[in-house]
C-alpha cells in the first residue's frame, strides 16, 4: 500500500509552485517600489541641486539672489541645536530607561508610565511644538532661542530614545547581572560596569536615529516661530537661530524658479548630515554588537 499518491501530489505541485511565485513577485515588487521611488527622488534632487552645491553655498548667508544664496546660518544653527538636543535627550532618556528596567517595581503606576511613554512616541510633532511654545518660549521666557528649540526637540525624541534604551537594557542576559551580584557588586556597580557597557551599542544606535529625526523636523520649529531671515550665527544658547529644514521650506516657497534648485541643494546638505549620522549609528552597531 502506498501512502502517497504521486499523481495527486504532482497535480498540486504546479499550483503550489505558482502560488509561491506569485507571492514572491508581490513581495519583490513591494521592495522595488520603495527603492525605485527613493531612486527617482534622489535623482531629481541631485540633478536639481548639484549645480548650486559648492563651497560658497556652505559659507554664504541666505540671499535674494539665488546664485549668492547660502546655507551657512541654517547649517550652523542645526549643529547648535544638536549640541543641546543630544546631551539633554540622551541623558534623560537613558536615565529613564535605567530606572524603568532596573529599579522600578512592577506595579500599576510604573505600568502606567511605561504605557504612556509608548503613547508619547506616537504624538504628532506639531503638538510638541505647541508645548514648547507655551512652556519654553513664553513661560520660561527663553524666547526663540537655541535652548528653547533644543528642549522642545529633546522632548519630541525622548520617547524614542527611552524605548530604544529599554530594549537594549532588557537584552542584557540576567545571568550577567547575577554573576555580578555573586561577585559582591552593588546594584549601581552592576548597572554601571555590566549592564550599561553591554547595552551601549543598542542605546547609541537608537539615540542617533532619534537625533536624525530631530535634525529633519520642521513642524515644531514653525510653531515656535523660529526666524528664517537672518544674517548672523548664534553665539550662545540664548541666541536666535535658524535650522536646515526651515531654510529649505522657505526656499521651496519662493516664486523664482532658481530658488527651487537652491532648495534642492539645501536638501542635499541635510541628507548628507543625515547619512553621516546614520552611518555612525550603523558603524557603532556593527563594531560593538555582541550576541549572547
Amino acid at each position: 500500500m502506498r501512502y502517497i499518491d504521486d499523481s495527486v501530489v504532482m497535480k498540486r505541485m504546479t499550483k503550489r509552485i505558482t502560488f509561491n511565485k506569485v507571492w514572491k513577485t508581490l513581495f519583490f515588487l513591494a521592495t522595488t517600489f520603495a527603492l525605485v521611488t527613493l531612486a527617482i527622488l534622489l535623482y531629481r534632487i541631485i540633478t536639481q541641486g548639484i549645480d548650486y552645491l559648492n563651497i560658497d553655498f556652505l559659507t554664504n548667508f541666505a540671499s535674494r539672489f539665488a546664485d549668492k544664496a547660502g546655507i551657512k546660518a541654517a547649517l550652523v544653527g542645526s549643529l547648535w541645536l544638536m549640541t543641546v538636543v543630544a546631551p539633554v535627550s540622551i541623558i534623560l532618556g537613558v536615565g529613564t530607561a535605567i530606572y524603568l528596567e532596573e529599579y522600578a517595581k512592577k506595579n500599576k503606576i510604573n505600568d502606567f508610565i511605561r504605557m504612556n511613554i509608548s503613547n508619547l512616541a506616537g504624538v504628532p510633532s506639531i503638538v510638541f511644538g505647541l508645548l514648547g511654545l507655551t512652556i519654553f518660549v513664553r513661560m520660561l521666557g527663553l524666547g526663540k532661542s537655541v535652548l528653547a528649540a533644543g528642549f522642545t526637540m529633546s522632548l519630541l525624541i525622548l520617547p524614542v530614545i527611552i524605548v530604544a534604551a529599554q530594549e537594549a537594557i532588557r537584552a542584557v542576559p540576567n545571568e550577567q547581572r547575577e554573576a555580578s551580584y555573586g561577585m559582591g557588586a552593588t546594584k549601581w556597580q552592576t548597572i554601571l560596569r555590566v549592564v550599561l557597557p553591554a547595552a551601549i551599542p543598542g542605546i547609541l544606535t537608537g539615540s542617533i536615529l532619534a537625533l536624525s529625526r530631530a535634525i529633519g523636523e520642521t513642524a515644531p520649529l514653525v510653531v515656535l516661530g523660529i526666524p528664517v531671515i537672518l544674517q548672523f550665527l548664534p553665539n550662545s544658547f540664548l541666541s536666535q537661530f535658524t535650522a536646515l529644514p526651515m531654510q529649505i521650506y522657505d526656499w521651496a516657497k519662493r516664486p523664482q524658479e532658481a530658488f527651487q534648485y537652491v532648495a534642492a541643494a539645501g536638501i542635499l546638505v541635510l541628507m548628507t548630515v543625515l547619512l553621516l549620522m546614520n552611518s555612525i549609528a550603523i558603524f557603532i552597531r556593527n563594531k560593538f554588537q555582541k550576541r549572547y
Partner: peptide
C-alpha cells in the same frame, strides 16, 4: 512681504554687521 524684508536684511547686514535682525515667516 518676506522677500522684500529678506533683501533689506541682506543689505542692512552690509552696513551694520553687528545688529542682529531676525525675521520669521509665520
Amino acid at each position: 512681504v518676506a522677500p522684500i524684508i529678506e533683501a533689506v536684511v541682506e543689505e542692512y547686514a552690509g552696513t551694520q554687521p553687528d545688529v542682529k535682525v531676525s525675521v520669521g515667516v509665520s
